[in-house]
Every structure is written in C-alpha cells, then in structure tokens.
Simulated assay, not measured.
Amino acid sequence: MNGSRIAAVGHHQPARVLTNDELADLVDTSDEWIRSRVGIRTRRIAGPDEPVDELAAHAAGKALAQAGLAPDDVDLVVVATSTAEDRSPNTAARVAARLGIPQPAAMDVNVVCAGFTHALATADHAVRAGAATRALVVGADKMSAVTDWSDRTTCVLVGDGAGAALVEACPPGRSAEIGPVLWGSAPEMGNAVRIEGTPPRFAQEGQSVYRWATTRLPRLARQTCERAGIAPEDLAAVVLHQANLRIIEPLAARLGATRAVIARDVTESGNTSAASIPIALSKLVERGEVTAGDPVLLFGFGGNLSYAGQVVRCP
C-alpha cells in the first residue's frame, strides 16, 4: 500500500457578491446583526446558468493545471456535494465530461458540510490500495439553490463555490502526506441539519449544532492530530468547516494550535458546505500563508452531524 499526497489545489467562486446590506433588503436583519452572530460580511452567489457541476469543474480544472497534468492522467473523480441537480448522471460524471477525463471511476459523496474530508479520505484509501493512481477530489455546493430567502436564520449563512485537490501516490520512499482519517457521526441528532422537502430547503437547529460543535469536536480534532503523530502546537494551519466564526474560533482555541494560521474564509465566502474546506485551503496556499510541506489540519463537520478530519501536508 502506497501513501498518498495532495499534489495541487484550486478553487472557484461565482462572480456575484451578496453583501449583508443587500440581505437587509430581503429579510429583517442588518450588517451588524450578521457580523456579530456569524462573522460573515459577504458571500458569493451563483446564477441560474451556473450549475454545481460547472462550479466543480472550474475548481478541478485549476487543480489539474496546477499539478501540470492532463485529463487522461486522472482515473478517479470524487465530488462531495449535497446540492446535485439530478440523481443521475451524478455530479462527478458531469465534471469528468466537462474536463474530458476519459474513463474515470466517478462517484458523488453526500456528507453535506463534512463531505470534502470524507471524499479526500475515500480517494486516499483508493490510492493506498492501488485502486487509483490519481484522483480529483472536489467539494462543491450551490447552497443558494436550496435556501429559503425569507428565513433570516439560514439565508444569512450560505454561499456558493467549489474547491478541489489533486491526490496521487507518493513517490517511492516518501512518507504519506495525507494522514489517517478520523470520522464518525451522531445519527440520533442527524435531523439538526437538513435539506429536505419539495422543493428541497436547507434548515437547521442552530443551537443544537453549536453546542455539539463546540463541546464534542475539540476532542475529536485533537484525536485526529494524534492519529497523524503531530501535536496541535506544531500545526502550520487549521482549516475547519467554515460554518461561522462563533464555532470556528472557540473550536480552534480549544484545540491548542497556538502557532497555526486559522482559516476564516467564512467572513468573505459564507458557509459553502462541502466546498468550504478546499476553498479555504486553496486560498491559504495561493496567498502564501502556508508553504509546501506544512502540516495542516482539515476538519469537516455538519450535516448528519457527521465529522471527518485528517492532517495533510501542503502541496
């Protein structure tokens, strides 16, 4: 079994920026109310002609280009999304078609906000077992399509976008750069975050999610570091699911990553569900806030009250 690594990352967001002041024209809210409760200033919103597979393909194409690879170098496409427009063909197959990837295994993973870290683990396992050589792993969601824009408790949170990572086997003699995954769920509380109904609409029990995230997850995040054999204080960055700052900041503080850059992309992108971790990671790399080989904790949590995390080395 070979270890795997992230060779490159990329992200894509729609051009349209929706501000808090614009939201105040739709619902009873204000810029001050939103910032004080969730820390979000802006979010990106896709138009009707920007389906989720297009967002995903743009991000995946950037990761592929950054890695210096061609479409036929990829034999696995895994897309984490909970906002696929159709049941079949799945989003992964549509991304592969857009990019011209000839014969990949193509699958979607629906673990909502924890989707990307689940998908990354799936690709890592496939590469380690020799079932794939190179995989495109994408987190993509168009949350605006499942949002009730009259509900001020949820519409202030969401944004659209996609992020991607190119995963491949490590060269011979090189240690694995994607650490062991720690994953699980609290299925008895799964209804606390949901996208259901006809048409499907996003809803959540905000206080229940907040209590679960701030009390249960710090211990699990530390266990993720233990599995990778790294102390939290040695992390270069922490990229949590970008739910809101009231969850991110206390969770990061309780983790004890005292020297790490803490991703706060939620302030400008909103909660982009499965896309939030790869978008935030790609931006840290793009801005030079982390460098090649740096250890970074990725930790997703949310829908189904699922969680998944791993320590990775930056490309």
Rank of each mutant, 00 (worst) to 15 (best):
A263W: 06
R254I: 00
R264T: 15
A203S: 14
R211A: 13
L240R: 03
P232K: 11
A213C: 13
D234E: 14
A236L: 01
L251C: 04
R246V: 09
L217V: 05
P232F: 08
E233A: 14
E226N: 08
Q223E: 15
E226V: 12
R254F: 02
R211W: 08
Y210A: 12
A213T: 13
C225S: 08
I247V: 14
R246L: 14
R222G: 03
T198A: 12
R222N: 08
L220S: 08
R211F: 09
Y210R: 04
R219W: 08
L220T: 05
R194M: 05
I195A: 07
T198I: 09
T224Q: 08
I262C: 06
Q204R: 04
P218H: 07
E233K: 11
G256Q: 10
Q207Y: 10
L235Y: 02
A231H: 13
A263E: 03
A243W: 02
I248Y: 00
P200L: 13
I195V: 15
A203K: 04
V238R: 09
R201G: 00
A236G: 12
L217T: 02
Y210W: 15
I247P: 00
L235V: 00
V209G: 05
I230G: 00
V238D: 05
R211P: 00
P218G: 06
R194H: 11
Q207E: 14
R222K: 15
A203V: 01
R259F: 05
E249V: 07
A260Q: 07
P250E: 09
R246K: 14
H241Q: 10
R259W: 04
R222Q: 14
V261A: 12
